[in-house]
Design a binder for these strands. Structure first.
Lengths: 195, 195
DNA sequence: GCCTTTTTAGGACATTCGCCCTAGATATCT
DNA sequence: AGATATCTAGGGCGAATGTCCTAAAAAGGC
């Protein structure tokens, strides 16, 4: 197999295992075992565990950026785009109840480890923040765009954490509905001006 | 020194280290070193690392319960009591920006490890939830009390996670103000009825 | 001041960790 | 097919992990 393909497989598996069991709790052997490689061969592709983490974060950033770009291209209002973000909680609710949010839990773990890559991981949040801020700006909320984006991001994180702790899918649905209502209320109602 | 006192010290240190560096990343040696005990002696007090975790959770539950009871006894309206909870985010903002919320991050880690104690850790959330629900019920919101409690808990978790990732104290203050405004809006305005 | 109980220190255990080396297998190109 | 570059398997390194044992120190009752 080509080295590039193998490398991609390693990053794929590492991504999954880091999410499901955490970075520290995932060992070289775990990744190698799932990929079907010998432990020794690993070093040919990655010189250290930190390098795998870097590659995983890089990959997540690329995938997230691609997803947000695709959402941007899609037909639909900024409001619809934001709703799409909110509904990620529904689409991923099963995994979230098992393992939490991939971004939030990774950032938390790396913060505790005081890991060099913790800022890289936080960049994932920045991607969502900036994309959401763009949508709010397009809705005519330029000045508060970033604050509104962070607020929504904050909510999704809180929902994920509590949903994991209580394993409560109804809670997710309830809070998603509440977020959508909040979103609607943020939208200046130009169609029915009050005069 | 008495065994009880030593045990208490171990749990104290373990509590701190589990919070600051995580459960997995904290070793017997780390705890022993900080307490000033030899690693071997450890086994006299705790038969396994899981037992320390259990003791730490038990201790956190006791302390949290005591704090909430004290808040309950305090003079002040249910509204003031809820505000007191919200302002935990301000009081602990420095540690939160470094290590996140002690409850949320522990629950997340234990969920990923699929640890036996993960439900015990989630019980910490339940303490807050039930106490908050009591306050909302006292405010006349009996039917939605638990949902409102979870909503507030959710917000505090989201704020903690983002504050850690971005290390942004202003964000905490902004969201706390928003939570207090939300809280005010939840309160039926009996003093100025609309008729 | 002795004797029993409680608490301690230090080391050893098997295992796993991340990391590294090397010889051989596999693929690629001429 | 032969030569060369690429990729792999397996094992071994020292350090660290959680766990366990034992002999000595400390504490406490008589």
């Amino acid at each position: 197999m080509s080295a590039i393909e193998t490398r991609r497989q390693i990053v794929d598996v590492a991504d999954k295992l880091f999410y499901e069991h955490g970075y520290e709790a995932t060992s070289f052997a775990d990744i190698a075992g799932e990929v079907g490689l010998s432990r020794g061969n690993f070093y040919y592709h990655f010189k250290s565990k930190d390098q795998i983490l870097e590659a995983v974060i890089e990959r997540r950033i690329a995938k997230t950026g691609a997803m947000l770009n695709a959402w941007q291209e899609d037909a639909g209002s900024p409001l619809d785009r934001i709703r799409r973000f909110i509904r990620l909680l529904i689409a991923n609710s099963a995994k979230i109840m098992d393992y939490g949010c991939p971004v939030g839990t990774l950032c938390n773990e790396l913060a505790k480890l005081d890991h060099v890559a913790k800022d890289d991981a936080a960049h994932l949040f920045a991607l969502y923040r900036d994309w959401l801020a763009r949508q709010f700006a397009a809705l005519g909320r330029e000045t508060e765009a970033e604050a509104l984006a962070l607020h929504l991001l904050m909510r999704s994180q809180g929902v994920a954490t509590l949903a994991t702790a209580f394993r409560d899918g109804d809670f997710i649905r309830r809070e998603v509905a509440d977020m959508e209502a909040w979103l609607q209320a943020q939208c200046p109602v130009t169609s029915s001006p009050q005069f």
